[in-house]
Write a protein that binds this DNA or RNA. Structure first.
Length: 268
DNA sequence: ATGGTTGGGATCCAA
């Protein structure tokens, strides 16, 4: 069985790429981030054609998460327990479409698009940290209630947990950039402390191994990327992992997303 | 030559 996560940066713009990728990768469950659409213009037929059930959570042209599965898709949850809302200057706070969960083939799968944070002193940063803490509390609660549960927290975490997860940590420090700050890294570690494991890194060791390359500055050809997309697995699920890969090829060519898909292989 | 992109109820905002 294969499960994967992919920030597609607009599902409509990427429809042909996604279809071709599903075709050749033959994966059973795909967690998608940044569909950038509402249900009205979601490409339902693409997944139908390919034999996948799909659940989507999209409220505007921003964000949007989905789960496609051909091993069942049950008990869909849109947003997690106490998921924080966001509004500029604290006004008109809305629940953003950043988390969807479903049970697929016995695995509780979450497709997650962690808030970007934007800048260390931006109001999006406390939102990001609070969002992560609430997700951690939710996931930890589920795991404590059922220690044998198979849970996959996968998506775009917008955090580079280690210095080698960016091409030049000094550049990030000098510029005072997000994704590498101690509070963000602490928020990520809290998931590991709660019992969730990064099951991809052991199969794709760095340095120089990334999941995202900025469109600007010719980051991809210059091999200047970031490892920010992760699959965190509960212990029972982690025990089933037989391999993992980052599909860097998918970042190549015209019409690529700025993120590569991340795939995890599981024993039956 | 020190920049260079891509996407969206778009002509700016987000990444």
């Amino acid at each position: 069985m294969k499960i994967a996560t992919w920030n597609v940066n607009s599902l409509r713009a990427r429809a042909d790429r996604v279809e071709a990728w599903l075709q050749r990768t033959d994966c059973d469950v795909l967690a998608i981030q940044e569909t950038k659409c509402k249900d009205d213009n979601f490409p339902w037929e693409l997944f139908e054609r390919m034999g996948y059930e799909v659940a989507h959570f999209g409220v505007s042209q921003w964000n949007g998460v989905a789960i496609a599965s051909r091993v069942g898709l049950d008990d869909v949850e849109r947003t997690f327990l106490d998921q924080p809302v966001f509004g500029k200057n604290g006004k008109d706070a809305v629940q953003e479409a950043r988390a969807i969960g479903a049970t697929c083939g016995g695995i509780r799968v979450w497709s997650l698009y962690v808030p970007n944070g934007r800048a260390l002193n931006d109001e999006h940063m406390p939102y990001k940290l609070g969002w992560l803490d609430a997700l951690r509390a939710h996931a930890e609660g589920r795991l404590q209630a059922e220690p044998e549960a198979q849970i996959a927290l996968m998506g775009d975490w917008n955090i580079a947990p280690q210095d080698d997860d960016v091409w030049d940590i000094d550049y990030f420090r000098t510029e005072g950039l997000t994704h590498v700050s101690e509070p963000e890294r602490a928020a990520f570690r809290a998931f590991e402390n709660a019992g969730f494991l990064d099951v991809v890194r052991p199969h794709t060791p760095g340095p120089g191994v990334y999941t995202y390359w900025d469109y600007t500055q010719l980051r991809f050809p210059k091999k200047e990327g970031m490892r920010i997309d992760f699959v965190l697995a509960s212990p029972a699920l982690a025990a089933r992992v037989t391999g993992a890969a980052i599909d860097r090829e998918e970042r190549k060519g015209k019409g690529a997303s700025d993120h590569a898909p991340v795939i995890v292989e599981l024993s039956d």
